[in-house]
């Protein structure tokens, strides 16, 4: 028993080191003064100069602004579509075309991005040729592209939340005189709101990080942050990107730790009350 525990603990230690050493190295070197990234400049480090450079890099800032717009619009649209889809799948056990619907909401989760991206672009080109819409590509087509795969993630999150949701709570509201639409907005939505919020954040991140689908569906002049980063990285290591990585990781950590803390606290409250 103890031998196996030792084995499992070794695996955990190795696994977490594997996950975090690269991330840590990026963070550490983002404070390195040397242009050579991996050569530590003892004389001038640590320094915040790359953060300063990042915040004055017009190309990166412009791309980040586009990414932000796309990510917010995508997250909002995905949450609407994904919540509807997740609700439909969780609440209507049988309807015509349910299997096809399940397949369509699951496939984007695993579909290689190059395939999704290519097919979306070809669709937009074909549509433009035949009906004149969308006229050219840009932020709009990118949002559509991102929503198509992000909503699948939201669907999963919402559906699994609803699966553990006591349906009789909705029935009780209906029993007390609320119509189905009202029940959804007054009872269901507030209760599953944390899951919906998690879905929004997930969709936001997916969009914010996406390179491949953006590359296919973006038009000229609508380069997103990952597209700019990718072209910089292809040319070699760049300390500004380390600084960007550090900012990203900090933001994600704050959000994730905050969310975990909030849910843990809510759970503790519920547990202490039930006892």
């Amino acid at each position: 028993m103890s031998r196996r525990s030792a084995f499992v603990i070794t695996c955990l230690a190795f696994g977490y080191a594997f996950l975090y050493v690269p991330i840590a190295s990026m963070v550490v070197y983002s404070f390195n003064a040397s242009q050579l990234v991996t050569v530590w400049d003892h004389a001038h480090s640590p320094t915040l100069k790359w953060f300063g450079a990042l915040l004055h890099d017009q190309e990166i800032l412009g791309a980040a602004w586009i990414s932000l717009k796309v990510a917010v619009a995508n997250a909002t649209g995905s949450v609407i579509l994904g919540t509807l889809a997740g609700y439909g799948l969780a609440r209507f056990p049988r309807f015509r075309g349910r299997f096809a619907f399940t397949a369509m909401t699951t496939a984007p989760l695993v579909m290689p991005e190059v395939i999704t991206g290519l097919s979306l672009l070809l669709l937009f080109v074909t549509l433009e040729q035949t009906i004149g819409w969308p006229a050219g590509r840009g932020i709009g087509t990118m949002i559509i592209g991102h929503m198509t795969f992000s909503m699948a993630y939201v669907t999963v999150v919402v559906q699994s939340r609803l699966a553990t949701f006591d349906r009789s709570v909705e029935e009780a509201a209906m029993d007390l005189g609320a119509r189905p639409v009202k029940v959804f907005f007054v009872i269901t939505l507030p209760i599953i709101f944390p899951a919906v919020l998690a879905g929004w954040l997930l969709a936001f991140t997916l969009s914010w990080d996406d390179l491949v689908i953006s590359s296919f569906t973006a038009g000229p002049g609508s380069n997103t942050l990952p597209m700019v980063v990718f072209s910089m990285v292809r040319l070699g290591v760049n300390p500004e990107i380390n600084a960007l990585a550090t900012l990203t990781i900090t933001a994600v950590t704050i959000l994730a730790v905050g969310a975990t803390w909030l849910t843990a606290r809510a759970r503790r409250h519920a547990a202490s009350a039930a006892a």
Binding site: S168, V169, E171, A172, A173, M174, L176, I187, I191
Partner: peptide
């Protein structure tokens, strides 16, 4: 008649209280 228009009310086995 749908549940929200029936002159009856139900007490559910799980109580189904609104947690929020």
């Amino acid at each position: 008649v749908p549940p929200y228009e029936r002159p009856v009310n139900m007490m559910f086995q799980s109580y189904a209280l609104f947690p929020h």
